[in-house]
Design a protein around this nucleic acid. Structure first.
Lengths: 146, 146
DNA sequence: TTAGCAGTTTACGTAAACGTAAAGCAGAGG
DNA sequence: CCTCTGCTTTACGTTTACGTAAACTGCTAA
């Protein structure tokens, strides 16, 4: 009787996602995703009582996680989201404020790049010291066994 | 009677610091500094009951704060400190483990650099959109006043 | 029909990183 | 001598970002 399947959630082109799909893809718990929704960072639709996430939600989740890796709080990320959204509807004053925020973020990124470079240099230095200490130790072992 | 001042803590070459000096210099609260000590990240000497911080402590505080800007937890920073310290005394096994950790950090930094680049591109894009929206608005205002 | 997931809400628990209030000691200046 | 200022400890409070448990719903496979 091959009836057409009852309109599965997962369409072939994947414009929609279940909570566990996203959880698996990005390696976060469903709890976290729900929490992000509660905090106003994601706005999934509902089918019955189940959440359905759009590709926009997916993109946002990706941004949230990137923000976390960069040390941003959820509040900061939410602030960015809200600014982005206001870009479409905002007044001139709003837009100017947004540009200011963008500049501040840029400065922050510059600082972070600096921090990363310093950190890399230190890693280099300590790696060298480590290597030296290692060859030293091995040298001594060599001598001890002769 | 010009006696020599009673051995002031602050020598001219500044190898020692009080808690509030460091707090001011790095714009953190004294509470935070004490907390870092409690967590084993700083090890100030004592003069009576007052803390005296060495320039090593100062350097470490700088590293702690940099770590925070990069999104590191205090535990992660402490782990690094401990590894650095072990470099001097560690066994071969210890040193190899340290090298592993260094590699992991490097990978993390690479990821962060990537994240930052992406973020910068997005800031560029949104800034452009903002600028467009602004000229649009101003255009309309121009028309409205003619 | 029953069992078993996957999902839901509600709510209390927890770890990290401090904030903040209380209460006390110590030296310097008036 | 008294007070002020800075430092100290002790300890409870707070925010963020979830973890975890309980109890319920709805679909699907056996």
């Amino acid at each position: 009787m091959e009836r057409p399947r009852p309109a599965k959630i997962t369409m072939s082109d994947k414009k929609q996602y279940t909570i566990s799909e996203l959880a698996k893809e990005f390696d976060v718990t469903t709890r976290s995703i729900r929490f992000y929704e509660d905090e106003g960072l994601l706005h999934p639709m509902r089918q019955g009582q189940s959440r359905i996430f759009s590709s926009k939600d997916r993109a946002r989740l990706k941004l949230i996680l990137r923000g976390k890796r960069m040390g941003f709080s959820l509040a900061e990320t939410r602030e960015l989201f809200e600014l982005w959204d206001e870009t479409l509807t905002g007044s001139e004053k709003q837009l100017l404020k947004t540009l200011e925020v963008v500049e501040r973020r840029r400065a922050q990124l510059a600082q972070q790049k600096n921090d990363i470079e310093m950190m890399e240099m230190e890693l280099d230095a300590h790696e060298s010291r480590c290597q030296e200490a290692l060859t030293d130790i091995r040298h001594k072992q060599q001598k001890a066994t002769t």
